[in-house]
Design a protein around this nucleic acid. Sequence first.
DNA 1: AAAAGTACGCACATTGAAGTAACTACCCGA
DNA 2: TCGGGTAGTTACTTCAATGTGCGTACTTTT
Lengths: 101, 101
Amino acid sequence: MTTPFPVNKALDIIGGKWRPQVYCTLETGPRRFSEIQRAIPDVSRKVLTDQLRELEQLGMVRRDDYSTDKQLHVEYSLTEEAFSLQPAMKALCSWGETRDE
Amino acid sequence: MTTPFPVNKALDIIGGKWRPQVYCTLETGPRRFSEIQRAIPDVSRKVLTDQLRELEQLGMVRRDDYSTDKQLHVEYSLTEEAFSLQPAMKALCSWGETRDE
DNA sequence: AAAAGTACGCACATTGAAGTAACTACCCGA
DNA sequence: TCGGGTAGTTACTTCAATGTGCGTACTTTT
């Protein structure tokens, strides 16, 4: 895993099938589990849970539990560390937008 | 494959285990197959061939054959399209560099 | 003559990420 | 009580990416 390419440090974290979409969804503010799921079509509960847990481990996502004894309420949000990736993410987005087909 | 997230268009192309390393290797100029292999420790011949073919299909890499009847000589280089990704790649690299651990 | 370099192709095995389907447990409104 | 919402967990399976090991064909170097 120790490649001489620092780019991999970033892509190990935001790469993969679902993580960029999770990132983009949380970029605009905290979201509940079911909101994220609705925002990302076709992601299963299991995989979304897995990804959120992994991103939490990596210090990219924070999980806040506002549940009461009455009601479940969990919110996910990006950490400061994650927001520091925004320039790179924006660059990737704008490249993707200008690309045809 | 049609996600509402343009970031995926970029990551579908430069994501994956080896492509970012191929990109970084070719960023500094054309390289022969064996040079790329030496630059990327642990990549197998087959996988490197596969990745180069796929990147060629995607219009990111150009394959130039300078072989004579005497000598095999193939060079791989980035296309203009690929170089337009440089700002995004640089952003990812610098994020990776500043990140500890 | 033998070893090593260049640039592959092909068949097969392995692995890890992702998907499927079921279950828990509690709440709310009609 | 029935359907729907919240937020998951567990067990199992599938599949695409990756890796292994072989062969081709021709070259230069020792």
